[in-house]
Design a protein around this nucleic acid. Structure first.
Lengths: 214, 214
DNA sequence: ATAAATCACATTGGATCCAATATTCAATAT
DNA sequence: ATATTGAATATTGGATCCAATGTGATTTAT
């Protein structure tokens, strides 16, 4: 079933560009050339333009007429605001998710958590971190909350990755992940939510401190 | 300055379709025919398709490949979730806005508030209501919060309008607006935030009750 | 008469082409 | 030498055309 659900060219390009942006392969402020992208995907500029339109609606790029699209740049103040948004939304997602977590899902999340802490390769930290959180969130049925949170995370994913590699970012994240999943396992939704909020606020604080130094 | 900032065809079509959807001119589930829309705006299907791509990213339409786009339908559960999202975000926007409100802005908001309560034409209630809230929010500098809130409101604008015309919707909204703006005028940000939260929760409750009846 | 198959039409997805604007760089004037 | 103008090039926005898929009516077989 679900035959012929092949993705359209436009959605393939969209997902690929999204990934390239949040992974930092495309720098902030870097222009997206339609022709170049079209050649890259063996397609025409039409699907590329639809993909770029979508990216702008997601806030990942800015379009200026006849000038093209560039990867959105965030000021420290804007970064802080998005972390505050996350600190408001994601605890609610966790609170909703905890009573819906099956033993299987908890086991999977523990694996992801361990994989994150065990990884030695900084290139994978961002993905493993996100993978862990998304696994927890997947138990929640708050589809819109998750949609917004996903977009908020997308917008600051680059900074999250930066935060992980700096000072004791990984170490602290690992400890906090352990605490969150313990609370989830104990079925303590409120505590898991509060830990998630602090996890996000903590990341924000250390990130902003780092930005101030630089 | 800022000459030649003419809007592209695609953004004109996007805004027009967005308006048509949130105002209910296009029914839930109604298909959007690219050709028809293109003719309507004296343009080709290309800008129309970019506009529709944007609308999907905003959640206002759903696209199914080779079948086209239809106006998104919301279940009562989804409607409730979006109101809960609003109840989380909009109080924060107000809390942030209150200390930034100038006397001029307060005066403008009072006018909008009065215009809303005074209007006898149900067709205008939705716009006047939104106009009032947006005026208050405009004082806030939480651009992302406002962006998300705007989208959340877009998605349930139809239901908000329905809620206003039913039972004592207008009357209650008028009273609650008065209380909110009084708190804003007094500089009591926390109280204004709490009143906003209750305003949204109240609208949600009466809307859901109405949906259960029908 | 009914159900399956087929064909014509409608609609969307994508490619190619043209127009409008921006950018670059050389030529010219001061 | 530097600033300015203007042409050549690059890039985006939009129109038109073609291919792929869906839809609905009609035909045909049972």
């Amino acid at each position: 079933m679900d035959i012929s659900a092949t993705a359209s060219a436009s959605s393939i390009v969209f997902e690929a560009l999204r990934k390239a942006i949040i992974q930092g392969e495309l720098e902030e402020g870097e222009p997206l050339r339609q022709d170049e992208i079209a050649r890259l995907f063996n397609t025409s500029r039409i699907p590329v333009r639809e993909a770029i339109s979508r990216l702008e609606e997601q806030g990942l790029v800015k379009i200026r007429r006849y000038k093209g699209a560039v990867v959105t740049e965030l000021s420290p103040g804007e970064t802080e605001e998005i972390f505050n948004l996350r600190a408001l939304l994601e605890p609610e997602i966790i609170r909703n998710a905890v009573p819906r977590m099956t033993p299987e899902l908890l086991a999977e999340a523990r694996e992801k958590c361990a994989a994150f802490s065990a990884s030695q390769d900084p290139m994978t930290w961002g993905d493993l971190n996100r993978d862990f959180h998304e696994t927890l969130y997947s138990a929640s049925d708050l589809t819109f909350f998750k949609e917004i949170a996903r977009n908020a995370i997308d917008r600051v994913e680059r900074q999250i990755r930066a935060q992980l590699v700096m000072s004791n970012g990984m170490e602290r994240a690992g400890v906090e992940h352990d605490a969150i999943i313990t609370a989830c396992g104990a079925g303590n939704a409120d505590h898991a939510a509060e830990l998630t909020r602090r996890h996000i606020q903590g990341a924000k604080a250390s990130l902003l401190e780092h930005l101030r130094e630089a």
